[in-house]
Computed example of a mutant assay.
Amino acid sequence: MGSEIIIIPAIFIGLPWLILHYITRWKTAATLTGDDERLIEDLYDLSRRVEDRLNTVERILAADAPNWRALAADPLSTGLEDRSDNENLRRIK
Rank of each mutant, 00 (worst) to 15 (best):
D82I: 00
P75F: 05
W68D: 11
I5Q: 12
V57Q: 08
I6M: 03
L18P: 00
L20E: 08
L32P: 02
R91F: 14
A72R: 13
V57T: 14
F12C: 05
A10L: 15
M1G: 09
R69Y: 08
I11P: 00
E37W: 09
E51P: 02
A63L: 12
I11G: 01
R53I: 11
T28P: 01
K93N: 14
T78F: 03
D82Q: 03
L46W: 07
D52L: 14
D36Q: 14
T24G: 01
S84V: 02
A30G: 08
G34V: 04
I92P: 00
A70R: 13
D82C: 00
L39P: 02
E58Q: 13
L20C: 04
N88E: 14
E51V: 07
D52R: 12
A70W: 08
A72Y: 13
A72L: 15
G2N: 09
G79A: 04
D42V: 07
E51N: 15
I6K: 05
E4P: 00
G34Y: 01
A10H: 08
E87C: 00
Y44N: 09
G2K: 05
K93R: 13
S3D: 08
P66C: 09
I23W: 03
I19Q: 02
E41R: 14
K27G: 02
D52Q: 11
L15T: 14
A63D: 15
S84N: 07
D64C: 15
I7H: 03
P66W: 00
Y22K: 01
T78R: 02
L89N: 07
T24S: 07
W17R: 05
R69D: 05
A73L: 11
L15Y: 07
I6P: 00
A10D: 04
D64V: 12
L89Y: 07
P75G: 03
D35Q: 06
I19A: 07
A73S: 12
L18E: 06
R83S: 08
L46T: 09
A65G: 04
P16A: 03
I11A: 11
A72D: 14
H21M: 10
V50G: 05
A10K: 12
N67S: 15
E51Q: 13
A30Y: 06
D36Y: 05
R90I: 13
E4L: 12
L54T: 13
I5S: 12
W26Y: 14
W17S: 06
